[in-house]
């Protein structure tokens, strides 16, 4: 287990190094930040001074090494636009995005897995067909459109839920959270649901496929022959056997959900990371873009690491053989 962890950590570090290079080089390829930093009427002297201050006159590799050095000391640089450390900017927005993402994933799992298992357990039934039809809609209709429809129906027509914002928040552990107040929860429902839909459909399809296959296998037949109820078969055997692919996809989806909550956050004016990155791209705020991309790659890498470890926890065959065996 320790050896596995160590190997994975080294791999993760390599991936991060490569990613930081790509991101740094990639961001340098677009635009000239100087035009954003200073007004068009600034004198040549001021211009030269700013270029020197930000190290923009140095060759790319020198700039990268400097960036890497500061990064390793926890310094992501200052935002060109806001003039504050980038890390602060991101950390203020991160909880809102995490809150939204985790709620969406919670909805996807608690609703999607049971529905998918049902659809796989009774594949021909009208209810299963309805679930599968809904899941096709979930994977194929664009998120932004569903988001707009949700606002139209629940906020505009019915007036049950607010259309945007985080609502009332409570300060816990130094950050603001919406899900702890009734008003915040009401604000959270629609965007979380919107963000959940795609993953919900994905969970349904995966759980269905796994259940279909396992229901035909000997494990289920043997359990039935021993007198287990259908509920016990599903709960104890099938759920355990379909868990691995679900965890894999969930892990990968979690990272991409954080990264691409952009659309939902924009539609529901949710003040998260997505909105920050969109703003920084329009204003060519390089340090924010680079820091955001590096953090997102870090998130992907970490989650892949966690998924690998979760496998070992879920599947006893992947753990190292016990000394007793």
């Amino acid at each position: 287990m320790v050896e596995l962890l160590f190997r994975r950590l080294i791999q993760a570090a390599t991936v991060m190094l490569a990613m930081s290079m790509l991101v740094f080089a990639g961001v340098y390829a677009i635009g000239n930040p100087i035009d954003v930093l200073i007004g068009p009427d600034a004198s040549q002297a001021v211009r030269a001074e700013v270029i020197a201050r930000y190290g923009l006159d140095l060759p790319l590799w020198r700039q990268y090494l400097g960036f890497l050095d500061r990064l390793l000391h926890g310094d992501f640089g200052r935002s060109f636009v806001y003039g504050v450390p980038v890390l602060d900017l991101i950390l203020v927005r991160l909880p809102a995005t995490l809150e939204l993402t985790l709620s969406a994933i919670l909805i996807a799992v608690t609703v999607g897995v049971p529905l998918g298992m049902y659809a796989g357990y009774r594949p021909g039934s009208p209810a299963a067909r309805a679930v599968m039809a809904a899941s096709v809609v979930g994977v194929s209709v664009p998120t932004f459109w569903i988001g707009l429809i949700l606002i139209l129906v629940f906020a505009v027509w019915l007036g049950w839920l607010p259309a945007g914002g985080r609502g009332e928040t409570v300060r816990v552990l130094g950050t603001e959270w919406s899900f702890l107040t009734l008003d915040g929860l009401a604000h959270l429902v629609l965007p979380a649901l919107n963000l959940a839909l795609f993953k919900l459909a994905l969970m349904i399809r995966l759980a269905r496929a796994g259940t279909l296959e396992i229901m035909l296998g000997d494990t289920v037949k043997f359990a039935r022959a021993a007198g287990l109820s259908e509920w016990a078969v599903l709960r104890h055997h099938v759920l355990r056997l379909i868990a691995i692919p679900l965890v894999t996809v969930l892990g990968l989806e979690f990272a991409s959900t954080v990264a691409f909550a952009v659309v939902t956050e924009t539609i529901f004016s949710w003040p998260g990371l997505g909105k920050l990155i969109i703003d920084s791209i329009t204003s060519l705020d390089r340090p924010v873009m680079v820091a955001y991309l590096v953090l997102i790659s870090l998130l992907f890498t970490l989650i892949n690491l966690l998924v690998d470890l979760a496998y070992a926890a879920l599947d006893p065959r992947l753990r190292r053989a016990r000394s007793a065996a």
């Binding site: 000997d218 494990t219 043997f222 359990a223 104890h236 055997h237 868990a243 599947d315």
Partner: peptide
Amino acid sequence: DPMATLNPML
């Protein structure tokens, strides 16, 4: 086949 009948996860 006991490999197929016993649940490998339990």
